[in-house]
Computed example of a mutant assay.
Amino acid sequence: MPKIKILNFYPVFYVAGFIIVLTEFILHIHGKSICTTQGCRIVESFVKGGDLILLISGLALFITLIFVSLYKFPPKIQPLIEYFHSGILILALSVEGYLLGFQSFVVREFCIFCITVFGIILLSCLFRLIRKRFEIIYAFSCFISIFLITYFVNPEIGQIPSSQYVLIYSKECQHCEEVIQFCKTHSISVQAIEAKEITGALRTLKIQHVPVLFCDEGATKKFIIGQDNIKEYLLSNISQKDIQEGFCPIFEKEKCQ
């Protein structure tokens, strides 16, 4: 009797996973999401074809698992189906190893939706192990191996420093150099960071050109793109005190004493 109860948990988990992925799929079509964390958007930005590819793959995964766990196969091929069942879970948990490692060690942001799906697959594998399907041990081995690989070998996405003004530049960019010199001339405190150090973050924000000025105004965060736009923004934020003390904005000479 306990054996049957454990076996019956399989379709329950798979149906739950299917419903979660289907809900996310429908919301995605309408421009919404179950997950509102930055991690979800970053993971999506690195998937070829976007989040839709992952969602379709998830739907296919759970539909297949539901079919395999509920359909009454002939006794002759049932042992082969059991190995096929385990093989799907091994592949799924291996993929989750990469996704979870990517979020843990690369972007350092977590996708709630991804973690939920991972939890369902992990529980399914544990119940598979309880049912003495020992081949499922490969799933845990693959998961741990791939998870650790993302720790030792991963592209650095980088984070934008915490500062009022952060200038993102490239050494090969003449416009960037002009903005840097402009800030030096006007004694504007700006923290500079090379674009290659935060390539992933820029890609996520769909920013393809530098210079870029990140402005932290408390409750408001802004990205100013382009040499002229950055100069204009910085000049517009120069305090009247600076002007009174002799600071002369080069584009507003009429305000100088």
Rank of each mutant, 00 (worst) to 15 (best):
A16G: 07
G101A: 07
I34K: 01
I160L: 13
Q164K: 15
I120V: 12
F147H: 10
F13P: 02
V210K: 01
I180Y: 12
R41D: 13
L27Y: 08
V47Q: 06
I53W: 09
I136S: 05
L167K: 04
Y165T: 11
S170E: 10
S236G: 14
I112N: 01
V210G: 03
G17Y: 04
F62R: 10
V15R: 00
F152G: 10
R128M: 11
E254P: 00
I144G: 07
E24V: 01
I53G: 00
Q38F: 04
I160F: 06
V107R: 02
D216E: 11
S163K: 07
L213G: 07
F46S: 01
R131V: 08
D228V: 06
F13R: 01
C125L: 06
K3N: 12
S162N: 14
Q227T: 09
R131D: 11
I77P: 05
C248Q: 04
I137T: 10
K222M: 14
F140L: 13
K72F: 02
F113T: 01
F25H: 08
L123H: 05
N237K: 15
F140I: 14
K221I: 03
F84Q: 00
G200A: 11
E24K: 00
E44N: 15
I146A: 03
Q181G: 13
G49K: 08
F67L: 15
L123G: 07
F105Y: 15
R203Y: 12
Q103S: 09
C256E: 11
K132H: 11
P79M: 03
I144A: 14
L80H: 11
Q208V: 12
F9D: 00
P74N: 07
S57I: 07
P2E: 10
